[in-house]
Amino acid sequence: MTGIRVGTDADEQAPERSPGSRSRDALRAAQMYYLQDLTMNAIARELRTSRSTVSRLLSMARETGLVQIQVNNPSERAPALEQQIRRRFAVEAHVVPVADSVNDSEVLDRVAIQAARTITPLVDSNAIIGVAWGSTLSAVSHHLTRKQTHDSTFVQLNGAGNTQTTGITYASEILRRFGQAYGARVEQFPVPAFFDHAETKTAMWEERSVRRILDLQRRMTMAIFGVGSIGAGVPSHVYSGGYLDREDLETLDRDEVVGDVATMFFRADGSHRDILLNRRSTGPDLDVLSRVRRRICVVSGESKIDGLRGALAAGLATDLILDEGSARRLLHT
Rank of each mutant, 00 (worst) to 15 (best):
A78C: 05
S240C: 00
L322M: 13
Y33S: 00
K147N: 11
D274R: 09
Q180R: 02
L157D: 07
N72T: 05
E173L: 15
A181S: 08
T318E: 14
G7T: 02
V261Y: 08
Y34E: 01
D9T: 07
P97H: 13
T2Y: 08
E92L: 03
F195W: 14
Q70M: 11
D151Q: 10
L320G: 01
R87K: 07
V191R: 15
H143F: 05
Q70G: 12
T120Y: 04
D151H: 12
R329V: 04
A223G: 10
R56G: 06
A29D: 01
V238S: 15
V227F: 14
A193W: 01
A44N: 05
E173P: 01
L312A: 06
S138W: 02
L27H: 05
D215F: 09
R267F: 12
S172R: 09
F194C: 10
T49I: 10
D104S: 06
S271P: 07
G228S: 14
S300T: 10
S326Q: 05
G325S: 13
R218L: 11
P15R: 12
Q114Y: 15
A232R: 02
E76R: 06
F154D: 04
I129G: 01
D269T: 00
F266L: 15
M32Y: 11
L330E: 10
T163N: 15
L27M: 14
L81G: 04
G20M: 07
R293Q: 12
A327Y: 10
E16M: 03
R56V: 08
A42M: 10
L137I: 13
R176C: 10
V71G: 01
D287I: 13
D37V: 07
V257Y: 02
Y243F: 14
L122G: 03
D269I: 08
T149Q: 07
Q217D: 02
E256F: 04
G270T: 13
Q68F: 09
A115Q: 04
F89C: 04
A116M: 11
F265D: 02
E302G: 14
L108V: 03
T64H: 05
M60T: 11
L308R: 00
M60D: 11
G270F: 09
L157P: 09
D109P: 03
D196E: 15
A90Q: 07
G241D: 04
S236M: 08
Q84L: 02
L277G: 11
Y239R: 08
R218C: 12
L252F: 04
A78S: 15
A203M: 15
T251P: 00
D253W: 04
A14T: 05
I174M: 10
G325K: 10
M32H: 07
R17Y: 02
T166W: 07
M60G: 00
S300F: 00
D323F: 13
Y243Q: 12
V107F: 04
